[in-house]
Design a protein around this nucleic acid. Structure first.
Length: 323
DNA sequence: AATGAGGACTTAC
DNA sequence: GTAAGTCCTCATT
């Protein structure tokens, strides 16, 4: 169970598992998270889709942020919600007296939540492809767990602490409390815990959506399950595929590599050392660097997969066959 | 000092 | 055999 000292935004996924609270931490905590995907960050992806709802839920989450978790949970219970969507329940508790609008607002909230969950699952799916691991952390070997730790600490530019968790399997990590994470790694244990919490939750969702017990799945969840279910099968990946996957997720990897012209397939490696490090983690090559990675890219010239753009620029390459 | 082009050899699958 | 990884030289930015 999470420590109450970490405030949470209740953007959670419908009915959280084993008492999990939303993995999304509150604003003040986010300041220390170096790119940890915040609720506003996820929401900003839906601005075009649901701008009004987004504006509304943004205000709501700000309110929740400032609320004490225990108070909110108490309010939930008083409002007669127990195994509930926390934020909705909290919202209900807050909106006593506004019952006329509540149902509609709840639907908006659930809609946005489901979009957020969708994004989370897509992010995990991508990470699985990039890392060559399964979505369910409990299935990870110590090697997989180590890979995930390394990846996470590089991606979010955390202090390097992988060694603190050496020889632990995924299930070992999953049974550890936030406090144990902190003890093993004082600077960022709670951040790692929060990230793992997202994965645990997603895996739990997937399990919950399995065909045998799909009776109480609400509408809209089906596609989310499909997302979670889609195989993150671990096959050898080519460097150019790896780069493409990174480019598909500007939100997560845009600081390292981004499109200059997506239509023409022109991209720029913004942080060569970082991209090389990520590639090295994927391939289990700790000594990988940009020198070697770029040599591999150059091999693509002859194969007609990647070339230098017509106007050659440093760290800029072009896919010969943009999709 | 970092990046870029390629040769030559090795390694992993 | 293929796709990279490693190492290296020399050129360019």
């Amino acid at each position: 169970m999470s420590s109450p000292s970490r405030p949470h935004i209740y953007v959670d996924v419908p009915a959280f598992p084993h008492g999990h609270l939303s993995p999304y931490s509150a604003e003040e905590h986010l300041k220390t998270l170096y790119g940890f995907p915040s609720m506003p960050e996820y929401l900003s992806r839906f601005d075009m889709l649901v701008s009004e709802d987004t504006a509304w839920i943004m205000r709501k989450t700000e309110t929740f942020t400032s609320m004490d978790r225990d108070v909110e949970l108490r309010q939930c219970k008083e409002a007669g919600q127990d195994s509930v969507i926390d934020s909705t329940a909290g919202h209900r508790a807050q909106c006593v007296g506004l019952s006329g609008q509540t149902d509609m607002e709840d639907r908006c909230l659930e809609q946005v939540q489901s979009l957020v969950l969708d994004e989370v699952l897509k992010d995990i799916e991508t990470a699985c492809k990039l890392l060559n691991i399964t979505p369910d952390p409990t299935e990870w070997s110590s090697g997989h767990a180590q890979k995930w730790l390394l990846w996470t600490e590089h991606l979010y530019r955390l202090p390097q602490v992988g060694k603190a968790f050496q020889h632990l399997s995924g299930s070992d990590l999953c049974v550890m409390s936030e406090e144990e994470f902190r003890q093993r790694c004082s600077p960022c244990g709670d951040v790692l815990f929060a990230h793992l919490d997202i994965w645990k939750t997603a895996a739990w969702m997937k399990d919950r959506c399995s065909p045998e017990n799909n009776t109480f799945i609400g509408a809209g969840t089906d596609e989310l399950c499909a997302e979670a279910d889609s195989s993150c099968s671990g096959q050898p990946i080519h460097l150019w595929q790896f780069l493409r996957e990174l480019l598909l997720k500007p939100h997560n990897y845009g600081r390292s590599i981004r499109w200059l012209n997506k239509e023409k397939g022109i991209f720029k490696i913004e942080d060569s050392a970082h991209v090389a490090k990520l590639w090295g983690i994927r391939k289990n090559r700790p000594a990988m660097n940009y020198d070697k990675l770029s040599r591999s890219i150059r091999q693509y010239y002859k194969k007609g997969i990647i070339k230098k753009p017509d106007v050659s620029q440093r760290l800029v390459y072009q896919f010969v066959h943009p999709v």
